[in-house]
Design a protein around this nucleic acid. Structure first.
Length: 950
RNA sequence: CCUCUCGUAGCUCAGCGGUCAGAGCGCUCGCCUUAUAAGCGAGUGGUCGCGGGUUCGAAUCCCGCCGGGAGGACCA
């Protein structure tokens, strides 16, 4: 043992850096974010990219209600990856986040909190409470998104309650009116007859209720299959279509009977056990016995059969109203209950309504807001509440012999959330955007097909199918918290005044005073000039009460946020919309329909959709399953960069599995990345004052050139993946490069040079040059995904070489063709294979306890002649990359089939160990003054001594 | 029930007609103590959801089923 072991060790250049091994992201990230805000990094980036090609990712507004969850976090992180990577690709890519602030959930919450006090407040007052509620959550969510590291214009987001935005919405409405898309029509909606108000689906409570169900016979007048008539010697009028309903009161509004086109129907003849009369009924084939059994009829005869399709357009007479109606086809008809023939009242049912539209049936709804029959109903029902009318209808049916059976039935039925009374379906006048007017549908489909890129590609077929089938868009809602449809009702004749001109008048008003003006100010003050009833010329109006569907609001963002003059002017169309796959039906559709209707173009050039967050078993997250992972908590515990790394590593096109475990795994992966950066920085500490441009290509060793070539390849792959928005591919490639190529190979091999060579000698400087390149490139490539860590690491980079202060102002690295050399790479592939064989051989020695570290070993490799000559030339190189003391090559015969390409045998080196660099070298002990050192170390130490103490 | 979609090692992903199905992480064992609550090495691990079919040959193409997810429809 040498007495001066310590001094030798102190002559090594060991890594040193302040870049901490322990990230402590929960504490570190907020500090970095505070600096970004202080320096207005977002503003700096805007200025830096001014004049560059613009690419805007337009934010879809999340609903301002509640804390963000993993799904919203996923969405915002993906957007941030896109926006940041676009910026680093050199685009000017502003990001203006937005919030959806209107709508039922907020109104619902406010009304719930108010309770009975709500009745004493005006709509304007309730709206103010809604505004406060919405803004509360905007602030909460803004902080949470910022904490995730999402970069954008958080100080001036767009809000759907903003005056500018409300004007934008109304502007879109005006253009659609001008284009002739908007019309008014009856449509059934859920209606509470007690509160006399429309109800949304979310305001319904389903509870069991006992109703009177009836089987009713409708007399046919035409369309009964000829064969049945022949066989049974009957007339069409002898036949009856039998229907079943649990709401007898809707029978006055019956406008059709629906059958399934592919179901089998039969004509049945039986004698009524009470009257003895012979009845001929049409029934679903599978239900005949069930229906006959209801009244214990065993003696019945099947006269004939046909498919439902054959009954289409047959006609029947309403049993107690003077009306002839058709039999129609509908796919929703089933044989689970009833008769297989469905009573259809377009004014009293959602599906009935759609069927009615398809067959041009009248929408009948002879019921007033209080639920009482109007004069349109038969006189024996007028004035009666519909639910009280049920027995009367049943009695009537019995009297006229149209009743087969009446029986009580308990089923789930919707009730009003507030008064708990059963609700009804009632047709009311609603505003629509007609998708078939001016071929809006066709033009939209053409844009979907030709003008938009879909990520993933199947998004196109999905939305195509939806747009092809969608009905007209009902855009009116009977609520308070939203943008009013500025329709004026003529006091004299009830006609509606809503034109492009009047809408633009209100657009200007809303821009100035906000939509609140509609609710707060008397009608006279806000009337458009020369307002005149289109029907009677009257000039007295009342404000109508409907507001716009919130999807219309968010769907108007292309006007309010993208178009010039809307307040943000980000540019129309946007480069990309990025949302969950549920938005094929939601925002993507409302956006493209309003944009095509008003401008003829899609508002987006591309759509990127992602799946939903599910747990580690693939089940969706829900409170009841207890598998919810909180995005806010996860950030507080593990840090945003860990969460971001986890998300980036997953293929978002499919569902994304998130659990405590997946976050933990991401932390492990993060640590590897962080430690690699730490190593790079630790060995660059003394590199600050050095000018890398002085490095001559010739000073770089072969392995350095190879490493830079590998970096080139990684850069290329990462950039291509960023261009395809496949972030998991970026993560994967960088992971492999950092842990395999660098950490376990190149950086490991480099240690001897970095630690033991002369601090400023060519060998070490060459290595540092590569480390510098690696650090600079990797920091940038990871910046969109790990913005905090990249920034932190970037801050340790030696400055003064034309780099921006923040990595986020930089652009991605370019591959440098100087480092490309396929022949060299092929040679290295052979060396690496030989290395694998050697390392395996070393493992045997370790098991024997012959050696510990690789440096103690000497290796002999046997290879086929062709390989042997390659290896012979690179013998010392091979020793270096295996960290062994010596390699000898022996030429063997051709390699046997299935055998290893290289046969490596290892033994303990006969050389002595150098005390300083730990290599076993032949020249250790040959130099007088330093009997425990190798020649290289002696050279280094003497050079240092010659220079004198530092 | 309909439309779309996914199902390859414990996890995240490659492979998409042709050698014993791969990578990273994890896990196990070992080495080092000069990246040190680090680093290195060697191992482990999959009947490619299941069942048919096409083919000389299928994880890869076709059909059916099962399971997960999204959207919709239904509850008259």
């Amino acid at each position: 043992m040498s007495t001066n072991a310590k001094p030798y060790k102190e002559t090594l250049n060991l890594p040193a850096t302040e870049f901490a091994m322990k990230a402590n992201l929960p504490a570190r990230e907020p500090k970095i974010q505070a600096e970004w805000r202080e320096q207005d990094l977002y503003g700096q980036l805007r200025r830096a990219r001014k004049g560059a090609p613009v690419r805007v990712l337009h934010d879809g507004p999340p609903y301002a209600n509640g804390d963000i969850h993993m799904g919203t976090a996923l969405n915002k992180m993906l957007k941030d990856f896109v926006v940041r990577s676009l910026s680093m690709r050199g685009f000017d890519s502003p990001y203006v986040p937005g919030w959806d602030t209107h709508g039922l959930p907020i109104e619902h919450k406010v009304m719930k909190d108010l309770g009975p006090r709500a009745a004493g407040l005006s709509r304007a007052e309730i709206r103010e409470l809604c505004r406060v509620e919405a803004m509360k959550w905007v602030d909460v969510q803004r902080d949470q998104f910022r904490r995730l590291g999402v970069m954008g214009d958080w100080d001036d987001p767009y809000l759907t309650l903003d005056h500018r935005y409300e004007a934008g919405i109304t502007d879109v409405l005006a253009d659609l009116l001008e284009g002739g898309y908007v019309f008014r029509q009856l449509k059934p909606i859920h209606w509470c007859t007690s509160d006399q108000t429309a109800l949304a689906e979310a305001e319904l409570e389903y509870r069991d209720e006992t109703s009177t169900s009836v089987h009713v016979l409708f007399p046919m007048i035409a369309g009964v299959p000829d064969s049945w008539l022949r066989i049974d010697e009957s007339m069409p009028e002898d036949w009856r279509a039998m229907i079943w309903t649990t709401t007898p009161w809707t029978l006055p509004a019956n406008a059709a009977v629906a059958v399934h086109p592919d179901l089998e129907y039969v004509g049945v003849r039986y004698d009524d056990p009470e009257t003895g009369a012979t009845v001929r009924a049409i029934l679903g084939a599978e239900l005949v016995k069930k229906v006959m059994d209801l009244r214990g009829i065993a003696d019945y005869a099947e006269v004939g059969r046909c498919k439902g399709r054959a009954l289409e357009h047959a006609q029947y007479r309403h049993p107690f109203v003077d009306r002839v109606s058709p039999i129609v086809l509908a796919n929703y008809v089933s044989v689970e209950d009833g008769t297989g023939l469905v009573h259809t009242a377009p004014g009293h049912g959602g599906e009935d309504y759609l069927t009615g539209r398809a067959y041009q049936l009248p929408v009948l709804s002879p019921v007033d807001p209080a639920g009482k029959f109007t004069a349109e109903a038969p006189d024996w029902l007028v004035g009666l509440h519909v639910l009280a009318a049920n027995p009367r209808v049943v009695d009537r049916l019995r009297e006229i012999g149209a009743l087969y059976l009446s029986a009580p039935l308990t089923h789930s039925y919707p009730h009003c959330w507030r008064c708990k009374k059963p609700v009804i379906f009632r047709a009311t006048e609603q505003w629509f955007v007609g998708v078939d007017r001016n071929d809006l549908r066709g033009r939209t489909l053409a844009e979907i097909r030709d003008a938009v890129t879909w990520y993933p590609a199947w998004g196109r077929s999905r939305i195509e199918a939806m747009v092809t089938l969608r009905p007209d868009w009902c855009v009116s809602r009977q609520r308070s918290w939203g943008v009013p449809i500025p329709a004026l009702g003529c006091v004299a004749c009830d006609a509606q005044l809503l034109t492009a001109e009047t809408a633009r008048h209100f657009r200007d008003l809303f821009r100035k005073e906000g939509a609140d003006a509609w609710f707060a100010r008397p009608v006279e003050e806000i009337l458009p000039p020369d307002a005149k009833c289109p029907n009677c010329g009257g000039t007295e109006f009342r404000k109508e009460g409907d507001i716009l569907d919130v999807w219309f609001e968010s769907g108007s963002s292309h006007r309010a946020v993208l178009a010039e003059g809307g307040g943000f002017g980000l540019g129309f169309p946007a480069h990309m919309y990025l949302e969950g796959s549920d938005q094929h039906r939601g925002w993507f559709q409302s956006s493209i329909l309003t944009a095509v209707g008003t401008t003829g173009r899609a508002p987006f050039e591309s759509i990127l959709t992602h799946g939903f967050v599910v747990d580690d078993k693939g089940q969706k997250m829900s409170k009841s399953l207890g598998n919810v992972v909180s995005a806010v908590k996860a950030t507080e515990q593990h840090g945003a960069d860990v969460l971001r790394l986890m998300i980036a590593g997953m293929d978002y096109a499919d569902d994304v599995r998130v659990s405590e475990r997946s976050i933990k795994e991401a932390s492990e992966s993060y640590r590897k990345i962080r430690n690699t950066f730490r190593y790079l920085l630790g060995n660059l500490e003394d590199y600050r004052r050095f000018d890398p441009s002085t490095i001559d290509r010739d000073t770089l060793l072969d392995i350095d050139l190879w490493a830079l070539g590998q970096l080139n390849q990684t850069i290329r792959e990462a950039l291509e993946a960023y261009e395809r928005y496949e972030f998991y591919w970026v993560v994967k490639k960088l992971n492999v490069f950092m842990s395999i190529t660098l950490s376990s190979f190149y950086l490991d091999v480099l240690k001897d040079r970095l630690y033991a060579e002369e601090p400023t000698g060519d060998e070490r400087r060459a290595a540092q040059f590569v480390l510098f390149k690696l650090h600079e490139a990797l920091t940038r490539l990871l910046a969109p995904i790990l913005p905090h860590t990249a920034e932190e690491s970037w801050g340790y980079l030696p400055h003064g070489q034309g780099f921006p202060a923040s990595v986020h102002l930089a652009t991605f690295p370019d591959p440098d063709p100087r480092w490309d050399d396929p022949e060299r790479d092929a040679r290295w592939a052979v060396l690496k294979e030989a290395r694998d064989a050697i390392l395996k051989a070393l493992e045997g020695l370790r098991r024997d306890k012959t050696i510990g570290s690789a440096q103690e070993a000497a290796v002999e490799v046997v290879a086929a002649p062709a390989d042997a000559s390659i290896l012979q030339a690179d013998r010392d190189l091979l020793a270096m990359i295996c960290l062994v003391s010596q390699v000898t090559i022996k030429e063997g015969g051709p390699v046997a089939e299935g055998a290893e390409r290289f046969q490596a045998t290892a033994a303990k080196s006969t050389f002595a160990k150098c005390e300083r660099c730990w290599n076993h070298r032949v020249d250790v002990g040959r130099i007088e003054n330093h009997p425990t050192l190798c020649g290289r170390c002696v050279r280094v130490i003497e050079a240092a001594a010659a220079k004198g103490p530092a």
